[in-house]
Write a protein that binds this DNA or RNA. Structure first.
Length: 659
RNA sequence: GCCGCAGUGGCUUAGUGGUAGAGCGGCGCCUUGGUAAGGCGCAGGUCGGGGGUUCAAUUCCCCCCUGCGGCUCCA
């Protein structure tokens, strides 16, 4: 599998998504070792197209030297000469400190999180070698692009082990040395538009620090989303409200004992997450996808995955097994593609979908990017790939799946489409040939959408949408997403037999019907926080409320009656506050727990045989029978999965997970 | 990953170069209460971890961990 060579851009698959990634932070890295000796031996080629080395060049040894393990980084590509100059100065500095005139240059790609292309790296190393010789050093250059073994004896003094990161300066020089990467990146033009429901496209631009080109009146979230996408504006600087909520409600918490972005779920959080997971999987199966399960880790050396991953090693969690190096999946793409390539498929069976709920998918996101439930390193993503015979079938199926995603988020408690903004990414060619389809999509969505149009297809898809939740801090998070992938079937060798008996390559749709489950929770909590801020009672949908009914006896005299009422509420998550708190205190506790129905049992209720129900957020109470409450909840939770209470039904029996 | 800020009993926090106080929560006793905190008492702290400076460090310095904000990035 060969991905289009596109330095400066970079593939990420999330429900298989692919995004541009501008590399600006990486620098050349050097690890210095002051050694008694270093000895190396060339094993085999690591980079294709290199000549076989003559025998005398296959090993080398240097005594009493400063060894420099070097990786050239993406950033250096723009200016290899400047980078080499900066590196030479740094090496001279260190060599001076350890008082040696002998230097070993040892290309060592493992230092890098974002490796430069081999060509550029070689250019840089050659320049560096030349520069150092010019400064009068005795330079040993170990060959580039081969796997080597080495022996080394490091001196013990304090300066014997140092590492540096070096950035070339000389901006003027950089311009002349523009790399192919920069040129390629410059060639990719991205235009921003708003496409309204009538099919009219409004080109956007940035004027005076805000997005212009469309009248955003009545579409404030779309304005904020466009601004987020186009300018990365940050108007608010607070902790996202859902973080406090997820902890205060004892749902989810950070786990300092793990890696950042790997969370712990308390019983109530696990309950909610499990219910959403069940519902998403159920609905996706009903849509017609066949559920499968695939491994969480994959061989770095697998031919279909290798070149892809070597390019972006920093993105993956790496796991060393007893005999190979593997990476943890960042979506179900690999697993499903590897299954699909071995399947025997007829056109009669298309469209054909596989589905998996990945618990977990892993992405080693940068530390500063992590945030509560919005952005994680380990997350649960439903991922559903459909093979389609041709673009017409893909378009039809795309909309079938759109309805699945829409309904799912609606079921989870979101208002559709009010709570989301569509981001649509499309290639110029697809836009030209299928503009009617994109317009029909906007019409179906029911409000204007943000369109990013790419001049060329650099990524594996021609069309992609996301439903973006825009939160109180003006940050956008994508939930549901689907794409039309024109490349991966070929890359993975997935085929079907057509009417004429010929092998053909299908298109692949990549759907995450709800987006990451954690993000669904994030959205629900953010929505609740927004309600609270607006003076409305924050709550979760009844089917997701950890406690649906709280029975509160006025005094201990009614405990027995309360227990019998509790026993009549089977099929409902009902619990009983059997503490010795006062009534007011027990009501307060129930309100803090966001319990939608609080049933008070006192002497009056025992006599009347009815219960007094306080409905969440209102101070209004109403008399009703137990059966009436039961059927009310049944109708509110119809067609949703059910799980019993996650904790003991008597509050006095519950431990506290978090103050 | 980079820059800045933060970390004090389960939670929220006060405070200090001479080893810490409060509220909530917990436990006990009293209270038997009609819709968002009843009363009294008790227990609970290696002041995130490691190193350094100092007669003495929770306090000052360095490194690390975790979190927050920004950058970058993105599902």
């Amino acid at each position: 599998m060969e991905t289009p060579s596109l330095p400066g851009y970079f593939r990420v698959s999330g429900a298989g998504a692919l995004y541009p990634r501008r590399i600006t932070r990486a620098e050349m890295r050097i690890l210095f070792l002051h050694v008694d000796y270093l000895e190396y031996e060339v094993k085999e080629k690591a980079v294709k197209g290199l000549p076989d080395l003559p025998k005398e060049a296959r090993h080398g040894r240097a005594e009493e030297a400063l060894v420099c393990f070097i990786s050239a980084e993406k950033r250096d590509e723009a200016n290899p000469i400047g980078a080499a100059k900066a590196a030479a100065a740094s090496i001279e500095d260190v060599a001076g400190q350890v008082r040696t005139r002998r230097v070993v240059l040892y290309p060592y790609s493992h230092l890098s999180s974002s490796l430069a292309s081999p060509d550029r790296a070689q250019e840089l190393l050659a320049a560096l070698e030349k520069d150092l010789r010019a400064r009068g050093y005795d330079v040993t250059a170990s060959p580039f692009g081969y796997y080597k073994s080495f022996k080394v004896a490091v001196k013990g003094h304090p300066l014997s082990e140092l590492s540096r990161e070096i950035v070339a300066e000389a901006a003027a020089e950089a311009k002349e040395e523009l790399s192919d990467a920069i040129k390629a990146e410059a060639k990719l033009r991205s235009d921003w538009l708003v496409l309204d429901t009538k099919g009219e496209a409004h080109p956007l631009s940035i004027k005076d620090g805000s997005v212009a080109g469309f009248d955003f009146k009545g579409h404030d979230n779309l304005r904020r989303f466009a601004s987020y996408e186009m300018m990365k504006t940050r108007e608010v600087k607070e902790e996202p409200p859902h973080v406090r909520l997820m902890r205060d409600l004892e749902l989810v918490d950070y786990e300092p004992g793990s890696d950042p972005g790997n969370l712990r779920y308390y019983p109530k959080g696990r309950l909610i997450k499990g219910l959403i997971e069940e519902h998403v999987s159920q609905r996706t199966r009903e849509y017609g996808a066949m559920e499968v399960e695939s491994p969480v880790m994959y061989d770095f050396e697998h031919p279909a995955l290798k070149s892809y991953l070597n390019r972006f090693p920093a993105r993956q969690y790496v796991v060393q097994t007893p005999n190979k190096k593997t990476f943890l999946r960042f979506s179900a793409c690999f697993g499903q593609f590897l299954i699909m390539k071995d399947m025997v498929i007829s056109y009669k069976q298309l469209p054909l979908s596989l589905y998996e709920l990945t618990r977990y998918s892993f992405r080693a996101e940068q530390r500063g990017e992590l945030a509560g439930l919005r952005r994680l390193r380990a997350f649960t993503m439903p991922d559903c790939h459909a093979l389609c015979a041709d673009v017409e079938q893909a378009k039809t199926q795309f909309m079938v799946r759109f309805e699945v995603a829409w309904k799912l988020l609606e079921d989870c408690g979101f208002s559709m489409p009010d709570d989301f903004e569509v981001g649509m990414r499309v290639t110029e060619a697809f836009w030209r040939d299928h503009r009617d389809f994109v317009t029909a999509y906007a019409k179906r969505w029911g409000k204007p959408i943000l369109l990013e149009k790419w001049s060329e297809q650099f990524f594996y898809f021609t069309l992609k949408y996301e439903f973006n939740f825009v939160d109180a801090n003006d940050k956008a998070a994508a939930l549901s997403t689907d794409q039309i992938d024109t490349e991966n079937a070929k890359r993975f060798g997935i085929t079907f037999t057509d009417e004429k008996g010929a092998k053909r390559t299908p298109l692949i749709l990549h759907l995450s019907p709800s987006g990451a489950i954690e993000r669904v929770m994030y959205g629900l909590l953010e929505k609740a926080a927004a309600d609270a801020k607006a003076g409305r009672p924050p709550m979760l949908p009844v089917w997701l409320s950890p406690t649906q009914v709280r029975i509160v006896p006025v005094s201990a005299d009614q405990l027995d009656d309360a227990r019998s009422i509790l026993s009549r509420l089977d099929g409902v998550r009902a619990d009983l506050d059997d503490t010795s708190d006062t009534l007011a205190k027990k009501i307060r506790t129930a309100e803090k727990d966001w319990v939608p129905y609080v049933a008070v049992i006192g002497r009056k209720e025992v006599e009347s045989g009815k219960i007094n129900v306080r409905v969440r957020g209102t101070t209004k109470q109403g008399e009703m029978t137990v059966d009436a409450l039961r059927s009310r909840i049944a109708s509110e939770t119809k067609d949703r999965p059910f799980r019993p209470l996650a904790e003991p039904k008597f509050l006095s029996m519950r431990p506290i997970f978090r103050g």
